[in-house]
Structure formats: structure tokens, C-alpha cells
Design a protein around this nucleic acid. Structure first.
Lengths: 130, 130
DNA sequence: ACAAGTACTTACCCTATAGTATGTATAGAA
DNA sequence: TTCTATACATACTATAGGGTAAGTACTTGT
């Protein structure tokens, strides 16, 4: 059998992931907001509280199942806070928690990069010399 | 049949995604670095050029197939540059492109948040099981 | 009476991604 | 000669996540 690194011989992938997480701070972040939709949801909430239906309309490409699924996960991960008023029809708002607010610089940096890219700042062929 | 919103009646999901992309800058970013491993790869490259084998050792949790797959994709997306010296054994280095460098603030913001969270600044991770 | 709006839930399916395990070319070292 | 290292490639499988469609509870408006 081919000789591999020690960690692959003795550990499962989950254990490898735990190891990588301790070594790399970005890995830690990806385990929190590493899905496709989560940063998009957080981006929308960064402008202020939103009702469930507002989020739905703001992100029409996401299905209801996936949206609610991610909202639940974000709530469990303490990144957002769900506020449900006991009325009919339901009135539920979502907002960023303290930890969620802490992610705004990440989201802002993403938005900035997208705007720079859209403005053609990173054109094909450009290289970096440092 | 249940009455749905206009966009769902007339558009495919791909079209919905394209629509969301035009509306939301974060969506644009997620289409570039939206996988689990890409930000982790970029984080490693942000400290300097790396050979393929160095990346492999730096991120032991990722399999070779997935690593090379993402490197190819990042290269296609103009975020990294592959440099292969015509020697045996092969000597291939990867480095950030201009656009890749532009993403460093995003990666840095992620790393910062992780460090703050690890320092207990957001009181998360205590009652959350990953 | 019945549709409409709200915030979900659930069952089922399907595909994209990830993981496993192997193979390949080349040349110098042992 | 066989081994090792490099930087991949590839076939095959597994699973997690996402998509579709429909249902639920409750009340106000027509």
C-alpha cells in the first residue's frame, strides 16, 4: 500500500477537519457561514432587521425550505436572533446578534471586492508584482 | 394549483440565481469563493507562494482530488496563477493574482472574527455543538 | 364560504460535490 | 533495480445539500 501521511493513516476525515479547524482560523469561519446562502442572508440582515417574508422577497432565488433551514442554523449558531410576536398572521423578525454584527466587516469586504471587480479593477491579464 | 410568485412561474433556478447575482454583490463573491475549501486555500496563499505539495501539507484535511479541483477552478476564475517549471520532478507554485490579492481583506476579516470568537468576545461556541 | 397572507413543515427526489483508491510520467538516489 | 518524490488524472461510490410540491394553522377581508 502507498505510504501516506500519518494523519491520514490514523484519523477519520472528521478528525482531520477538527485538526484543520484548530490550525486555520478561516476554517472556523467556514464552518459557521460556509454555505452558499448564509453570507447572502447575513448581507441582507446587515442593513437592518427583516421579516421572514421580506427576506424571501429580497432573495427570490432561494427556496423557502432552504431559507428557513439556514435561518434556523444561523440562530442555533448564535449569529442571528429570531423575534416572534404572538399575533396572527405571524410576525417574525430576524436580526444580527453580537457575533453576527462582528461578521459585517467580512460581508462588507466581500461587497467591496464585488464592486471593484464589477468596475473592472481586476481585469484579465493583470498580475501582481510584490 | 397553488399560486406562486411571478418569478417562480416563469423562470428557472439558474435564471433566478443570475437575477440574484445582479442584485446582490455578496452573491457574486459566493459564486467565486463559495465552496468550503476555497477561502482556506486563499488564506494559505495570502502568506506567499506555495508549491502544490506545500498546500497539501498545509491543509491535510482536503483530499488531493478536491485540492487540485479547486486550484484549477481558482485558476480559471483568475484568482490564482499557476507557475510550472519544466523540470523533473515537477515544480509547480501557486500564487494570488491581482483579483486574488483583492480578496485578502475578506480573508483577513474572517481570520479576525475567528480570533475574536475564539477569545470569547461573542460568547458563542459554548453551548453550540458542531 | 372562501381566498389570501403569514411563517413555517414535511415527504420525496435529484444532482453536485466530496471521498476512496488507484494509476501515470520522469529522473535521481540507494 | 526498485524506491521515492512530484504533480497530477480518473474511475467509482457515497452523502449532503438543494429543489419540488404540497400541507398546516389561524384570522382578516370580500
Amino acid at each position: 500500500m502507498y505510504r501516506m501521511t500519518a494523519i491520514k493513516e490514523t484519523s477519520t476525515i472528521q478528525e482531520n477537519k477538527a485538526y484543520a479547524l484548530a490550525q486555520c482560523p478561516v476554517t472556523y469561519v467556514m464552518n459557521r457561514i460556509g454555505s452558499y446562502w448564509k453570507p447572502i442572508i447575513l448581507y441582507n440582515l446587515s442593513h437592518g432587521d427583516m421579516r421572514y417574508s421580506e427576506l424571501k422577497r429580497a432573495i427570490p432565488a432561494v427556496t423557502e425550505k432552504v431559507l428557513i433551514q439556514h435561518l434556523k442554523q444561523l440562530e442555533t449558531d448564535q449569529l442571528i436572533i429570531r423575534d416572534a410576536k404572538p399575533v396572527v398572521p405571524p410576525f417574525v423578525t430576524y436580526r444580527l446578534s453580537a457575533a453576527g454584527h462582528g461578521l459585517i466587516p467580512v460581508i462588507e469586504a466581500m461587497a467591496n471586492w464585488a464592486k471593484e471587480a464589477a468596475a473592472g479593477q481586476y481585469d484579465v491579464g493583470k498580475d501582481v508584482t510584490d
